[in-house]
């Protein structure tokens, strides 16, 4: 088990102020916050794409973690070959690629060029690419931000399947409904600081900070 992931006074320029937190195994963690709050940067720090300006970020043990981006980048080859590439880079058996495509419902599109797939299909392909690697932790950076409701539902189903298979989910979003559907706990980020960490239910019904309350109100204007 590679978790927990421990951030000790980790900062990134002036986007993420020095923050300390632990990401434990188990509950699906939702990182909430307005645009510019630093969600994406925090995800990238945890995934290792960015190095902290100060402080440390450490896993308990080395292990495999994957990330799905808001806009996935596909290589100019077939859907199947894109998954196979990820397996090859990871040193895994490429023949596992088809199984991963089946898992996300793309088996019939395996030979289609990845770049001509729809946005929802490409995001499912990105999830298949992650699925094939069996990561212990999956980071998702607003994976449905550009998708329509039906594509969003399909993506959420797959994310639940990851969760069911025992993969720890860490997802950035500003969609409160999605947070409720997929999340167990919320980390609320405001101007590079963690203002709140609570269960989803508690956060949405009784936010502790005025900023979080305003954020929830802004995202769900019809609630009040």
């Amino acid at each position: 088990m590679m978790l927990p992931l421990e951030l000790r006074a980790a900062s990134f320029r002036d986007i993420i102020k020095p923050l300390s937190l632990q990401i434990e195994a188990g509950p699906s963690t939702i990182i909430l916050g307005a645009n510019g709050a630093g969600k994406s940067v925090l995800m990238r720090l945890m995934h290792g794409l960015l190095a902290p300006s100060s402080g440390t970020i450490a896993w308990r043990r080395p292990g495999r973690h994957a990330m799905v981006f808001q806009r996935p980048v596909m290589l100019r080859c077939s859907a199947l070959a894109n998954v196979a590439y990820a397996l090859r880079v990871a040193g895994e058996d490429e023949t596992l690629a088809m199984g991963a495509l089946k898992e996300v419902g793309l088996a019939q599109l395996a030979d289609r060029p990845a770049r001509v797939l729809s946005g929802g299909e490409q995001q499912r392909l990105a999830l298949a690419r992650a699925w094939a690697l069996h990561p212990e932790v999956l980071f998702l950076d607003e994976p449905t931000a550009n998708l329509d409701p039906s594509a969003t539902r399909e993506i959420e189903t797959i994310i639940r399947a990851f969760d069911a298979a025992g993969t720890k989910i860490v997802m950035a979003t500003h969609n409160l409904g999605q947070a409720r559907r997929l999340g167990d706990e919320v980390i609320y980020l405001h101007q590079g600081r963690v203002l709140e960490r609570a269960s989803v239910d508690q956060f949405l019904s009784r936010p502790a900070s005025a900023e979080a309350a305003a954020f929830i109100k802004g995202e769900l204007p019809w609630v009040s």
Binding site: L49, A66, M67, V73, Y85, V89, R129
Partner: peptide, 22 residues
């Protein structure tokens, strides 16, 4: 490509060749 390839674990020469080919 940079972030995606690094996320997949392709670095340096391998990443460069992947981009060249793509």
């Amino acid at each position: 490509y940079d972030e995606q390839l690094r996320s997949l674990g392709a670095h340096g020469l391998r990443a460069a060749l992947t981009v060249l080919w793509d």
